[in-house]
Design a protein around this nucleic acid. Structure first.
Lengths: 152, 152
DNA sequence: GAGGTGAAGTTCAAATTTCAACCTTCGACC
DNA sequence: GGTCGAAGGTTGAAATTTGAACTTCACCTC
């Protein structure tokens, strides 16, 4: 008889581990690089999402979903960003339960400073290391992953 | 004049974000699935590395490097695993500064239980969603990332 | 064989994240 | 209107992670 488990074959195994290790190293590197601006990559992503939204603001739940974070975690993080004056909270008129997180001018300009530096890091440590085809494949794969797993 | 920053083009941007979101969702999912065994993916990876090592043991620093974790984090985590009797620490004779982390029988058998389940999760939520070529590309890309960034 | 430098681990405190409990408001239904 | 289940957010405590300081030991050089 055979075992019911389909183990990864050796190439899949190698690729899976490369992904785990590479991701760990990459995130640590990007985090380090952002530290000079007083941000982590998580904070950075929050600011970016806000900067792109209409009126530079987003509802907390919407933001949490886009980043796949718990509402609780986001509450804490936004609390810190607010203390740093990078984000402002305002209550939502149409839904009294709701809260808008809005990027302040200071937040926007910090982002303007950090972004070029951060993008360079993403290029240097990821994008430019891969062929365009390979990088596109990464996009497809993780798009499928997101799609498959769906919301939390 | 042009700006000095090479921004990501729109496809790269999309791929990068897919990677970020997909990774967040994937890790959360794998973590959740392992919780039934009282493990997180981080604990799991530690046990796996130990299980594959000669005598099922590894020096702390070596283990930390393979997982790209700080020594401090590893000390804490192994402390918890030790409290759960899944890992045992022994001191290293040839280098008195050193400490071996060694998988216990209980650790090994928990791993035997968890592994099939975990691998299924990795397949279902990642490997089987991608074509073999695309998944191989993921491996290549993150291998290059690891290589490029190197040790911490 | 005494210093000096650096590696291996741990420790403690601070920062961050998780988890469950808890309001308040919305919406549907009766 | 009144009720009930669920969504949006927050809170506070517990668990985990980070970062810097610290101890012990190894190794190199003079």
């Amino acid at each position: 008889m055979t075992t019911g488990t389909r183990w990864l074959d050796s190439e899949q195994q190698v690729a899976w581990r490369a992904y785990l290790l590479g991701t760990a190293r990459l995130m640590a590197k990007l985090d380090d690089d952002l530290r000079q601006f007083g941000l982590g990559i998580n904070d950075y992503e929050i600011l970016v999402r806000l900067s792109e939204a209409p009126d530079r603001r987003l509802r907390m739940a919407e933001l949490a979903d886009r980043l796949h974070q718990s509402r609780s975690r986001l509450t804490h993080t936004v609390g810190r960003l607010e203390a740093a004056e990078l984000v402002r909270r305002t209550s939502c008129k149409s839904d009294k339960r709701g809260v808008w997180a809005e990027l302040t001018d200071a937040g926007f300009s910090l982002l303007e400073q950090a972004a070029p530096y951060h993008v360079d890091g993403v290029r240097e440590n990821l994008v430019d290391l891969a062929s365009p085809e390979d990088f596109a494949a990464v996009g497809r794969v993780f798009d499928a992953v997101s799609e498959h797993i769906g919301q939390r």
